[in-house]
């Protein structure tokens, strides 16, 4: 069995007057045939790793072997603390945290794939920042993470959560939709508002190409984590203000699947199109060949 619609969950939440996170904890208990205590404990472990990846990410100063990333999170965070900011301090903070996690992942740090390693910055950064803004408890954070799970599950069942199958809409797009739902839950919104925020967010990621430069999860991936984390917070606020997505979430996922099917394989992680094929993109690929200390030995073939 797969989770292929948000509707039964929304109905249950409404009927039992529960939040989406609470409903998803019950769901997980049923799926794992385990206790709520164990389920919540497992999610706390996930959260611990996420928090550590944020803390480590914003400290990074070293550039990656490709020379494309490293140190940006730190710069953005510094800006949030000093002087004027056009986007606002919270936006800078959430972007810095998301980019930090992505940089940490790039430097072989331990992260939580959410849903993938390339998109691992968005959910932690948005949850962390939403919790900070709302002064939320750990319990609320855990519920937020569970709420985000439903969004990911439906995307996975009805479309995909892999860039090689459906482009980046399915990776960072999905992670941002998951994060928007989590943020609503943390802010105390209803299940309906959480799913609506995810719909608003996912609509704005449709068609996103996966065209990583030199085949690495760095450009555009790392900065995109930051951009989309900022958007996820906005989607959550929009939903909480009463703005409704005209297309319901389930149908947005179908649209994502439809678009994913139509996308050419050049922009599905093959690095044969888009940014990977630009002059500078190709130059990075060549440069990478000669960086680092380890060299490949002469091969026999």
């Amino acid at each position: 069995m797969t989770v292929d619609s948000v509707l039964p969950f929304l109905e249950k939440a409404k009927k039992e007057e529960k939040s989406l996170g609470e409903i998803m904890i019950e769901h997980e208990v049923a799926v794992q045939e385990s206790s709520a205590k164990d389920i919540v404990f497992a999610m706390k472990r996930i959260w611990e790793v996420m928090v550590k990846s944020i803390e480590e990410g914003i400290k990074i100063t070293k550039r990656s072997p490709s020379g494309m990333s490293g140190g940006d999170a730190k710069k953005i965070l510094a800006k949030s603390k000093k002087g004027k900011s056009l986007a606002g301090k919270n936006i800078l903070k959430v972007a810095a945290r998301a980019i930090g996690v992505a940089e940490y992942s790039s430097s072989m740090g331990v992260i939580v794939a959410s849903p993938t390693a390339g998109s691992s910055g968005v959910v932690p950064a948005v949850v962390y920042t939403a919790a900070e803004i709302c002064d939320a408890s750990e319990e609320a954070i855990i519920k937020g993470l569970f709420a985000s799970g439903l969004i990911g599950l439906v995307c996975d069942a009805k479309a995909s959560t892999s860039g090689s199958e459906h482009g980046c809409q399915a990776e960072i797009g999905v992670s941002a939709a998951m994060a928007a739902a989590a943020a609503v839950e943390i802010a105390g919104g209803t299940a309906e508002e959480a799913v609506n925020a995810a719909a608003i967010m996912l609509k704005n990621s449709l068609g996103l190409a996966c065209d990583p430069v030199a085949g690495l999860v760095e450009t555009p991936c790392i900065k995109r984590n930051g951009m989309m984390a900022a958007e996820a917070l906005l989607a959550a606020d929009m939903s909480l203000s009463g703005v409704k997505s005209n297309i319901p979430f389930d149908e947005v996922v179908i649209a994502m699947d439809d678009i994913g099917q139509m996308m050419p394989c050049e922009i599905k992680e093959t690095s044969e199109g888009g940014l990977a094929k630009t002059k500078t993109g190709k130059a990075y690929k060549i440069r990478l060949r000669s960086s680092g200390t380890r060299k490949l030995e002469k091969s026999e073939d």
């Binding site: 497992a42 940490y104 992942s105 794939a113 799970g149």
Partner: peptide, 14 residues
């Protein structure tokens, strides 16, 4: 149907 498929695994990047 487990949410831990979407939030996990814990792994070394990238």
């Amino acid at each position: 149907e487990s949410v831990f498929r979407l939030l996990g695994p814990i792994m070394v990047g990238p």
